[in-house]
Amino acid sequence: MIKTFQKLSIIIPAYNEGPTIHLILDKLQQVNLLNNIEKEIIIVNDFSKDNTEEAIKKYMNSNPTLNIQYFKHEVNKGKGAALHTGIQKATGDYLIIQDADLEYDPQEYNLLLKPVLDGFADVVYGSRFMGGNPHRILFFWHTIGNRFLTFISNMFTNLNLSDMETCYKLFNTKVIQSLKLRENRFGFEPEITAKISRVPKIRIYEVGISYYGRTYEEGKKIGWRDGFRAIYCILKYGLLRIK
């Protein structure tokens, strides 16, 4: 059954992304979604210490026709907390998560939308580990760590995902807004995966996407401590099934 909907909310958590935030917004302007779906861009500034806010407001003033909703935290709460804010503010039928950096290509939104529009999926993950799209070669141990976290997450969710930690996740907005989300930092990924897997009759799909990873010198923020937190969250929400 072909599915139709009107609006896609794009949730962008931003922390110290002043130098590049305009570049990702330029890319979003260039995206033409399938079926002429409208774009709602929701930026949540998580108390950046650089010129992120100035860069966003300058862009909004220069592009008044672009539907950008801007929110900010008065203290730094973490990426997960910024996503919580954006999710609750979303008014689109579906929403997708977009980092403020340039590691993921918004032109590939239509790859994630297609299983939904074709009537097959309620949730679509974009995998960096499948398909024939470009992938920057970086960080052997990060790759092993991501695959390990996905493996143990799958053990407790009974899913067969290849990339649980991916940024690109497309959700039915009402479904994700109905979940109680707790993790304020990088534990968001395993928590949302565990909780979405328990939604009755949920249909989860995965598609291959590109990945243009950043080095730490270029602004990458996740580290080994976040990996340990992810394991804790997998056990908390997957094994113990904390709501």
Score class of each variant (00 low, 15 high):
Pro19Gln: 09
Pro19Gly: 08
His22Asp: 15
Leu23Asp: 13
Asp26Thr: 08
Asp26Gly: 06
Lys27Glu: 09
Lys27His: 09
Gln29Ala: 02
Gln29Phe: 02
Gln30Phe: 00
Val31Ala: 08
Val31Lys: 12
Val31His: 09
Val31Asp: 05
Asn32Tyr: 07
Asn32Cys: 06
Asn35Met: 12
Asn35Lys: 14
Glu38Gln: 13
Glu38Trp: 07
Glu40Asp: 08
Ile41Glu: 09
Ile41Pro: 08
Ile42Gln: 03
Asn45Pro: 09
Asp46Gln: 07
Phe47His: 14
Ser48Tyr: 13
Thr52Leu: 12
Glu53Phe: 11
Lys58Gly: 11
Tyr59Lys: 13
Tyr59Arg: 14
Tyr59Pro: 12
Asn61Arg: 11
Asn63Trp: 12
Pro64Ile: 10
Asn67Gly: 02
Asn67Ile: 03
Ile68Met: 09
Ile68Tyr: 10
Gln69Phe: 13
Tyr70Arg: 05
Phe71His: 08
Asn76Gly: 04
Asn76Pro: 01
Asn76Leu: 03
Lys77Ile: 07
Lys79Ala: 05
Lys79Ile: 10
Lys79His: 02
Lys79Trp: 04
Gly80Glu: 03
Gly80Pro: 00
Ala81Ser: 08
Ala81Asp: 06
Leu83Glu: 01
Thr85His: 02
Thr85Glu: 10
Thr85Arg: 05
Gln88Arg: 12
Lys89Trp: 06
Asp93Ile: 04
Asp93Tyr: 06
Tyr94Gln: 03
Tyr94Ala: 04
Ile97Gln: 12
Ile97Asp: 07
Gln98Thr: 01
Asp99Phe: 07
Leu102Gly: 01
Leu102Ile: 06
Glu103Thr: 11
Asp105Ser: 10
Asp105Cys: 03
Pro106Glu: 00
Gln107Val: 05
Gln107His: 06
Gln107Asp: 08
Asn110Gly: 04
Asn110Glu: 01
Leu111Glu: 00
Leu111Gly: 00
Leu112Asp: 00
Leu112Trp: 01
Leu113Pro: 04
Asp118Leu: 00
Gly119Glu: 08
Gly119Lys: 05
Phe120Glu: 13
Ala121Ile: 06
Asp122Trp: 07
Val123Lys: 02
Val124His: 08
Val124Asp: 07
Tyr125Pro: 06
Ser127Thr: 14
Arg128Ile: 05
Met130Gln: 15
Arg136Trp: 06
Phe140Val: 12
Trp141Ile: 09
Thr143Asn: 14
Ile144Phe: 14
Ile144Cys: 13
Gly145Glu: 11
